[in-house]
Every structure is written in structure tokens, then in C-alpha cells.
Design a protein around this nucleic acid. Sequence first.
DNA 1: ATTTGGTATCTTGCAATGCATAGTATTTTG
DNA 2: CAAAATACTATGCATTGCAAGATACCAAAT
Lengths: 107, 107
Amino acid sequence: MNAQFKKGILELCVLALLKEKDRYGYDLVNEISKSIEISEGTIYPLLRRLKNVGYVKTYLQESQEGAPRKYYKLTLKGQEITDELKQDWLEFVKKVNSLLGGESINE
Amino acid sequence: MNAQFKKGILELCVLALLKEKDRYGYDLVNEISKSIEISEGTIYPLLRRLKNVGYVKTYLQESQEGAPRKYYKLTLKGQEITDELKQDWLEFVKKVNSLLGGESINE
DNA sequence: ATTTGGTATCTTGCAATGCATAGTATTTTG
DNA sequence: CAAAATACTATGCATTGCAAGATACCAAAT
């Protein structure tokens, strides 16, 4: 799979998953990995960045299965950004597909 | 519009347009610009790369309107790659959208 | 004749972002 | 102890798009 497609989209994926419910980093890696290859070395710096710009906040919670989990929760600003980004993405896909489509789908 | 979304997709756009018919660089810029912002400084290095890896070949043709045009034509390998890339892209979009969806539309 | 402007190509170096790799560290369970 | 779950950091690399500028050709305006 073309690695470049992922550029810029991981942030949106993380935000969208967090909009569903609060999640911890390890969980995000596993969830996203079902669809897109991704590693921890990618997620944690991204999460840190999202926190720095105020899109998410965090809280700790004990776990029965290992180290305590750090949950990430969308802020209000984060929710707004998520919606905008998602809209941008959908528009972008539409534009690209219209370029790709051309006219002849008959192959 | 998130500039990162473009990563990796411009190559596919160029290839897809070339599959339709032979085009010269300036024409590609104009055509793609209708949908996605793009500049010449992006296209020409990309076209050179595509030629280096054997996806396209070129031929010159005079123009009444200015400098001679360098037309780009897909090679057989280029055609195959185009189809693969397009498939990859469509799959990628599907996966991302399923991650974004959340509230299962119909499944 | 010179300038301007549109058409057309190409080069260079920079910025942004994700990736791979390789660590460190903690807690719980077996 | 070892393994699995979980969090975090660091470094250097690869890819790719972009801005900016150089070059060249042609036609119309000055």
C-alpha cells in the first residue's frame, strides 16, 4: 500500500475515533491497525501534538491488565476541528475521484 | 484544504490523466488545477521521476503558441502501475471512510 | 525595435510529515 | 523471572509538494 496516502490522514483518523469515545494510545494503535498499518512510534508523537494544540486533553485510569492507561478526550475545539477536517477529506476524495474517473469506466 | 492529503495522490492523478491521452506538462498543471491546487514546480520534477522509473516516455512537438511541447505518454509498465495505484487508492479511501464512519451507515 | 505577456520547460533548495528503529519504563499476571 | 499490556522518547531518513527563479519561444502592443 502506498505509504504516502497516509500523510495527513492519521490525524483525522485519531480524532474521529476519539469523537466516538475516549481511548488510550495503545487502543488507538490497535484500532487503526485493523485498517491501516501504523506503529506506536507514530501515534504517540501525534497524540502529544494534538494535546499541545489543545484538541485533546488526557486523564489517567488504572487498568487490570497492565500499566495505567492514559485516556485521550476531545476538547470542544478538537470536536470542531474534527468536523472540519472530515469535511475537507470528503471533498478532497470527491475531487480526486472525479479526476480519476474521467469518463470511461468501461474496462 | 489540508496540504498533506495530496501526498502520493498527485502521481496517480497525472498517470490517470495520461491514460486518457498524451499530454504535456503545462496542460497537466492546468487540468489538475481545476480540482486540486498545484504548481509547475511540483509537476515537472514529478514527470521527470516518472520518466526515470519508466512509467512514461516523451516526445517533442512544435506549438503555434509558444515553446515546443514535450508530450508524455504512458508506457505499458506505466499503464499497469496506474491501475494498481488506482486500486490502492480506492481501497485506502474505503478503509479510511469506514474508520471515520463510526455510526455504521448500512452494514 | 523593444517591451510585455502568455505559453512552456526545468532546476534548486526548503518544509512538512510519517516511518523505522531502538530504546526506556511501569504494572500485572503466570 | 518472563511476558504482555501500556506509555513515552529519540534520531535520522525518505518522500514529496512548493516557492522561486531561470530560460525560451511567439505574438501583439508600444
